[in-house]
Simulated assay, not measured.
Amino acid sequence: MSPGGTGCFSGLLLTVGWLLLAGLRSSGGTNVTAIQDSGLAHEGEGDGEGDGESDEEAENDISNRTVVKEVEFGMCTVTCGIGMREVILTNGCPGGESKCIVRVEECHGPVDCGWGKPISESLESVRLACIHVSPVNRFKYMWKLLRPDQQAIVLANDSAILEVRREVRPLAFECDTLDSNELVATIKFTVYTISELQVRRSRSQPDTDAVLVFVLTIGVVVCVFVIFVLIFIIVNWAAVKAFWGARASTTEIHSELSSVRYKDSTSLDQTPTEIPVNDEEDALSEWNE
């Protein structure tokens, strides 16, 4: 082969080698790009799934927020002044319950509670209490001494409890309960004299006391009578014994007489056929002789 032909052949081989190398590089680059694209695709799919989950959570949150919670209130514990009541949930309770208590809150009735009763009293003094709920120091209290046809006298006591001594005339007191300088309850009391208190107590005694006294009196009388009878029997035991002995003998005699009469009546009631035949023949033979 000539040197020119050898050079052409080597040039051709070099060209083919470069072409093959370029093709391998292009195919390698394509594969890398595909892998990267597939990874990006997976990441995109993952991002899409995450977005879907976040959308579902958002929808659930919205649905939970849009649940209508129906609330009703229980009865207030008082008919006037300050009391407590239950707040009851009738829709949206946990665990599928039909009703559940959410909380207990304060409730207010009419301010005027009229005339009240002392919390304790004796013949010397009376203890009065204002309308309040716990805590006691949350409210302010204003005590007044009421006077007929005159302005009330504000007392220095500002606590919920007032102790008053009885006087020769009845007294009337009023207590105002204030919450944040707002009147929420007021109540009045009458403090009677000692004589009036005794009269009221005697009138308030039930009729059963008289019945109880009558029954107790009858019981005592019966017990005394039984005791006297026992003492009489012990003292006159000989006479009592003789009396019961005579009575017992009389009873025995009467029983014996009744038994004899019964036997006689039974013997008379016997018929002739009941008489033995041998006795009749013996009597006839003796007659003939």
Rank of each mutant, 00 (worst) to 15 (best):
Q36E: 15
G52V: 07
E53N: 01
A58K: 03
D61F: 03
S54C: 06
I62S: 13
A22S: 06
S63N: 11
N60Y: 13
F9P: 00
T15P: 02
E53S: 02
I62A: 12
T15K: 01
L40N: 14
A34I: 11
G52H: 02
E45K: 14
R25P: 04
A41H: 12
D37W: 09
S26C: 03
G46Q: 14
E57L: 08
E72K: 04
G50Q: 14
V32A: 04
A34R: 12
I35E: 14
V16T: 03
G46K: 15
V16R: 02
Q36A: 11
V32T: 12
T15Q: 11
L20G: 04
G28W: 11
G29C: 10
Q36K: 09
V71Q: 00
Q36I: 12
R65C: 01
T30P: 01
E43A: 12
A58T: 08
G39F: 15
G23M: 06
V16E: 03
N31M: 08
S54T: 13
V67G: 00
S38R: 06
L24P: 01
A22M: 03
S10M: 11
S27K: 06
S63Q: 14
S63I: 08
E70L: 05
S63C: 03
V32P: 00
G29Q: 14
G23W: 01
G28V: 11
A22T: 11
T15R: 09
V68P: 02
T66W: 05
D61S: 00
N60H: 06
A58V: 03
E57N: 02
T30L: 09
F73I: 06
L14R: 08
I62V: 10
N64F: 02
F9K: 10
S54H: 05
E72Y: 03
E49P: 01
L21T: 07
L13T: 04
T33V: 09
L13S: 04
R65A: 11
V16M: 06
E59D: 07
E72H: 04
D61Y: 04
L21H: 04
T30K: 05
G28S: 09
V67Q: 02
A58R: 08
V32I: 13
E72P: 00
E53P: 00
F9A: 12
G17R: 07
V16Q: 07
V68R: 11
H42Y: 15
V16S: 00
A22I: 14
T66R: 07
E56W: 04
S26D: 08
L20K: 04
T30A: 08
T66N: 10
A22W: 07
G17D: 01
F9E: 15
V68K: 05
E57Y: 10
G23F: 02
N31L: 15
L24K: 00
V67W: 01
G50W: 10
N60S: 07
S38D: 14
E45N: 10
E49F: 12
R25E: 09
T15N: 08
E57F: 09
S38Q: 14
L19E: 01
L21E: 09
S54Q: 13
G23H: 08
L24C: 09
N64E: 07
F73C: 00
D47Q: 12
D61E: 11
K69D: 01
G50I: 15
L13M: 09
E43I: 06
A58D: 02
E53I: 08
L19P: 00
V16N: 03
E45L: 10
